[in-house]
Computed example of a mutant assay.
Amino acid sequence: MLTVRALSVHRGGRALLDGVGFTARCGAVTGLIGPNGVGKSTLLRAVAGLPPQDATVRGGSLLFDGRPLPTMARERARLVGFLPQGHAVHWPLTVRRTVELGRLPHLGPLGRLRPEDHTAVERVMAATGIDGLSQRPVTGLSGGERARVMLARVLAGEAPLLLADEPAASLDPGHQLRLMEVLRAEAVERDRAVLVVLHDLSLAARCCDHLVLLKPGGGCAAGPTPAVLDPALLREAYGIPFAVTEAAGVPLVIPTLPPKSDRGVSRHAC
């Protein structure tokens, strides 16, 4: 499992993260939630060994199975797969060639794909439903198709720790659920630790085994999903009340607004 202990990241005189600690276990999906600006992306980038520009890790430790994460880029890439925000691509590579790039940490000096590399590429393309797009240029794909291609590229590396920063952003509900199903299958069936940033709390409630709620001002609340999705904890972090309920057997986390007299705008503004 990934163990984060008292992690602090600073930029200039400002703390981007301060004293964050939690674990993310193999075989489970751990959701990283919290309001904008609390350091969710910063945390993922620190684990990946790619802290934001001009930011430094001031304290704490990052362990995987009790050992410090390697500092060498190639070694870290074999252990940690990182899917950053957005799905921008600038070169008209084919879908298959793009996914093959995910095997780079495992290739020898000549960079030739071996049979096991082709097997890994074919598996993740089938898992993400892009095998039918194999020879199309990535630059000509829709946003949803491109998101699946970039996910497949990360999965092709077969790293035991997978980090995904808002992978469901800008996707329609169907694509969101299918993407989360792929991440869950990677966690459960291939015993990987998945740490994923989500803003949709209902999606987090439905798809995550554990949650880490980053709080403004530092620190976090971490634990099983139902325990972290406590209305009092959510209100403390986000500054607004929440209703946590269920419909048709599916958990729902609904942000609400205080009465009109408390906020000075129409109750029907949204």
Rank of each mutant, 00 (worst) to 15 (best):
P35E: 08
G140W: 11
Q85D: 12
L44T: 07
G37S: 10
P167C: 09
G27L: 10
R136P: 04
M1I: 00
P231F: 07
G49Q: 06
C207V: 10
V182A: 11
M72K: 14
R267G: 14
W91G: 00
P173Q: 09
M72Y: 00
L17K: 07
R78Y: 01
G39Q: 07
T139Q: 13
R103T: 07
V29E: 03
R192L: 03
I254T: 14
Q85P: 13
P251M: 04
I240S: 08
T128K: 08
A120V: 08
T23M: 01
A152C: 10
R25W: 06
G108D: 02
S170K: 03
V182W: 14
P224H: 01
P105N: 05
E236G: 13
L155N: 10
R123A: 15
Y238N: 06
L161P: 01
G140H: 12
T98F: 09
V89M: 13
F22E: 10
G143L: 09
S266E: 15
R114N: 01
V154L: 09
L101G: 04
L63I: 02
P226K: 01
G66D: 04
Q176N: 03
Q85W: 13
P241S: 04
L155I: 08
G39K: 09
P258W: 04
P258I: 08
R103A: 13
L69D: 07
L79Y: 05
D54L: 08
R192D: 01
L155M: 11
G143P: 06
Y238E: 04
L257D: 12
D165H: 06
L62A: 06
R235S: 13
A152G: 10
T42P: 01
V20Q: 01
G49T: 11
R190A: 15
K40A: 07
V197C: 14
V250R: 11
G102Y: 10
S134D: 13
T245I: 01
A15Q: 09
L183I: 06
H87C: 10
P255M: 05
R206E: 15
T225K: 03
R5K: 15
H106A: 03
G39S: 06
G19P: 02
W91T: 14
L177D: 03
G249I: 02
L201E: 01
I254R: 07
G217H: 05
G249R: 00
E236M: 08
H199A: 08
R96I: 00
R112Q: 12
C208S: 01
A269K: 00
L201N: 02
L44M: 07
A168E: 09
P52Y: 04
V228D: 10
Q53N: 00
G59P: 04
A247M: 09
L32I: 04
E181G: 14
R78P: 06
P241C: 05
A248F: 08
L17H: 08
L179H: 04
G13Q: 12
A248R: 06
P224G: 00
A237D: 08
R192E: 01
I130S: 12
Q85E: 14
A243D: 09
G129Y: 11
P137N: 14
R153A: 15
V265K: 10
L83G: 05
E75G: 02
G49E: 09
L195N: 04
A48I: 09
T3D: 15
A159N: 04
H268M: 10
P52W: 04
L17M: 07
G132L: 13
H90D: 15
G144S: 07
G239F: 10
R96H: 13
G264W: 13
R263C: 09
V29T: 13
T71M: 01
G66A: 10
G144T: 11
